[in-house]
């Protein structure tokens, strides 16, 4: 197996699974954690990831197909999303090749798709837990907005507006800190989110506002 990427929690390998291009996500142990706690936390992450991937896809959200799970080695073997880029790389390439106004215009349909998708996800009470632009892939021509969600290790199943609000807040911070001048895009995401998470979005947005306030207070004190 060829090591492809190394994150903070997992190694990503590329391999072939009976003829299918495959990514192996291997969670490794953290030496600073107590071994027993570490083992159960790692197992928890693997299970959460598998559960959310399947539930999302059952609600019509594209996620990689899981081929094999080895709980002993904390490895998930999944479909490699061929011909894909992370939303992070895509936004960066659009921003670096266009004027600010053109870039926002180009990225607006994508923001719409992201909001729509997250609305569906929250409506199913799936909280992602780590919404960043590296945890979203675009497959094929990016202008087709074929959005694939990945990296569900911190996800959980919960019907609380607070958790959903925090999920969106994490995305807002990640988006704006990684990609300057994307406040407008986040508004587009929220608008689309409210349409697809029709019944629950009002409370979630209220919680988002609350969390934003808390975030600001914390920065003012600190």
């Amino acid at each position: 197996m060829e090591l492809w990427k190394q994150g903070a929690e997992a190694k990503i390998h590329k391999t072939d699974f009976y003829g299918k291009p495959c990514i192996v996500k291997e969670r490794f142990s953290k030496s600073y954690r107590h071994p027993i706690l570490d083992k159960s936390l790692t197992a928890q992450r693997v299970k959460s990831e598998i559960r959310a991937m399947l539930r999302c896809r059952m609600s019509g959200i594209l996620t990689p197909t899981v081929y094999f799970v080895n709980m002993d080695s904390s490895c998930i073997y999944m479909e490699e999303m061929l011909d894909s880029v992370t939303v992070r790389d895509y936004i960066q390439s659009v921003q670096s090749s266009k004027t600010a106004v053109e870039a926002i215009e180009t990225l607006t349909p994508l923001a719409n798709t992201i909001g729509h998708t997250l609305g569906i996800m929250h409506k199913q009470n799936i909280v992602h837990g780590d919404l960043t632009t590296s945890n979203m892939l675009l497959q094929g021509d990016p202008s087709n907005n074929r959005l694939c969600l990945i990296d569900f290790g911190l996800s959980f199943f919960e019907n609380l507006s607070e958790d959903k609000g925090v999920d969106l807040y994490v995305l807002e911070r990640a988006l704006i800190s990684t990609h300057p001048n994307t406040e407008k895009l986040f508004n587009v995401i929220l608008e689309a989110y409210c349409k697809s998470n029709d019944t629950g979005s009002k409370d979630v947005i209220a919680k988002l506002e609350e969390v934003r306030m808390r975030g600001r207070k914390r920065t003012m004190v600190g």
Binding site: K47, I50, R51, M53, L54, R55, R57, T65, V66, Y67, F68, V69, Y77
Partner: peptide
């Protein structure tokens, strides 16, 4: 996906 996730989901 269901076969591989069987004991988890």
């Amino acid at each position: 996906s269901r076969i591989s996730s069987k004991d988890i989901v």
